[in-house]
């Protein structure tokens, strides 16, 4: 339960599917490490998009 925020039933429903182990791992990182991880994810997404468009053409 979050202090001061009223639970919203729709958001609570979405919350059930959140992978909290991923969040706990992120919370162990520094802010900079979190941004570096985001950049890696961006790079991967870009590569996958490129690969997808090549195989579609």
């Amino acid at each position: 339960m979050m202090r001061g925020l009223q639970p919203d039933p729709v958001i609570e429903a979405y919350k059930r599917d959140i992978d909290r182990s991923l969040l706990r791992e992120n919370l162990k990182l520094t802010v900079e490490q979190r941004f570096l991880k985001l950049s890696e994810l961006q790079r991967l997404a870009t590569e996958l998009r490129k690969a997808g468009s090549v195989s579609a053409s």
Binding site: M1, M2, R3, I11
Partner: peptide, 28 residues
């Protein structure tokens, strides 16, 4: 950040808000 995203009320933000609230719970 949660309050602002909640107030915006955009359907595409719902999952993001859920994750942010889970983060707040983990932190607390």
């Amino acid at each position: 950040l949660i309050e602002v995203k909640r107030a915006a009320g955009r359907p595409r933000d719902l999952e993001a808000v859920a994750e942010l609230e889970a983060l707040l719970e983990e932190r607390e």
